[in-house]
């Protein structure tokens, strides 16, 4: 299914819960955190969507808006990609897990949880994946201070904005 047809299908099925945008031929569906699980289930089980292949799940620090979470899935049968996005608050942000829909999401959710400080409710094995157990802080948030850079400013060219 191409992106326009996917958009029509999703809007017909889910109504106002989704805000679909097509960018670079990729359908990006923005939802509220409360609809995250419902839309993910629909992507997985709806025979017209059939997104059976998990690509990745990660976070983005959107600063004042909160923390973005994005999920990329693909349908091997119908050959289309869908990106699902949401924004959770910086403090106490949480989302229901999708790791029972796509087992591949298990480690991605753990990684996103430890690097951004977002809880994934119902995750079968929460806890640190890559960081040492005693690590304090969420290193991929913008406010995380890199101690080395506190001691010595960035020596190279100005970083790209």
């Amino acid at each position: 299914m191409d992106a326009a047809a996917l958009t029509d299908h999703l809007v017909a099925e889910l109504g106002d819960a989704v805000i679909p945008v097509v960018e670079h031929d990729l359908l990006t569906v923005t939802v509220a955190p409360g609809d995250w699980r419902r839309v993910a289930e629909r992507l997985r089980t709806d025979p017209n969507l059939g997104c059976d292949y998990f690509e990745f799940l990660s976070g983005v620090d959107e600063e004042a808006e909160g923390l973005g979470v994005l999920l990329h899935v693909y349908s091997t049968g119908r050959r289309h990609h869908v990106q699902l996005r949401t924004i959770v608050p910086r403090e106490g942000g949480s989302l229901p897990t999708v790791s029972d829909l796509w087992f591949g999401a298990n480690w991605h959710e753990r990684e996103t949880a430890e690097l951004f400080g977002i809880e994934f409710e119902g995750h079968p094995n929460p806890g640190k994946l890559l960081l040492p157990e005693e690590f304090v802080g969420y290193p991929l948030r913008k406010e995380f201070a890199l101690l080395t850079r506190e001691a010595k400013p960035w020596p190279g060219a100005k970083e790209p904005e």
């Binding site: 960081l131 802080g137 080395t148 850079r149």
Partner: peptide, 13 residues
């Protein structure tokens, strides 16, 4: 010395 990862949160310097 940590090399290109001198300012990383996870690399030993």
């Amino acid at each position: 010395c940590g090399g290109p990862y001198w300012d990383s949160y996870s690399v030993t310097k």
